[in-house]
Amino acid sequence: MAIRSSLWLEYQIEANWTSPVIFILYNTLKPVGGSLLLLAMYYVVTGGFLGGEGLYFLYIGNAFYMLVAQTLFSVGWIIHDDREHYQTMKYLYISPLSYFTYLMGRSAMRFLLSLLPLSVLIGLGILLKIPYRIEILLLIGTFFLGWIFVISAGLLLSGVNMLTARHGNSIGQAFSGIFYLFSGVVFPIHVLPGWASTAALGLPSTYWFSLVRRSVLGKEVDSIMSGFTTGDVAVRLIIISVLFFVISYLTFRLADYLARKKGIIDMSTTY
């Protein structure tokens, strides 16, 4: 019941400020803008928009990254929104639902809403002649594992937000930059310095984006990640995701305890 209410609430907060058509347009414009930016970069270097493994790599990586970025953008804002904007956090704490369940529900809806712009980007990829070889079962599994990884990251972020002031509004977006840089989203991880490539292999997102390419393009073009079989990648992703979730959950619980102990669950920072 609590999950259903928080799913509904997230949808209302995200969508009820306008008509469904404008919401769909709004929900799509940001990811499309991000993709166009990368296409323009590709164009100024190569002089064209079509063909090339590099283009497929960055386009598909960026399209799926929007699931991560948009969900984290939203989740990264929930604590500050509840605490300082709507000032409802203390009421949520004394209501019969668990704040953790509430966060899970809201992040799940944001993840679902981000599937729409993703499908638009996949559709636009046809115009770019992206050679899709979609493996449906693998893709469904990839979505599920991706959701686990994204909510873990969201939980970690929420824990940190519990203890920090509001300075800007794009904390979630900035946080997702870690995964954008170190997970081989828009360039192969071998391009990174040696230490960063090694660090990338410890992130769940690296394996997730590898699974994305395997399930959508039918192959992996990253020279480091292509050394793993699809099964290896899936198993590593599951193990690292579970570890990441446990760490994120414990961090969130600790931050929750400290925030209540310090009396800052209704803090207001009007910088």
Partner: peptide, 18 residues
């Protein structure tokens, strides 16, 4: 953190030999 996204764009150019 925002510098990380910017760094990613730099590596995109490096991967394309720009």
């Amino acid at each position: 953190l925002p510098i990380l996204s910017m760094a990613a764009y730099i590596y995109v150019y490096r991967s394309l030999d720009a």
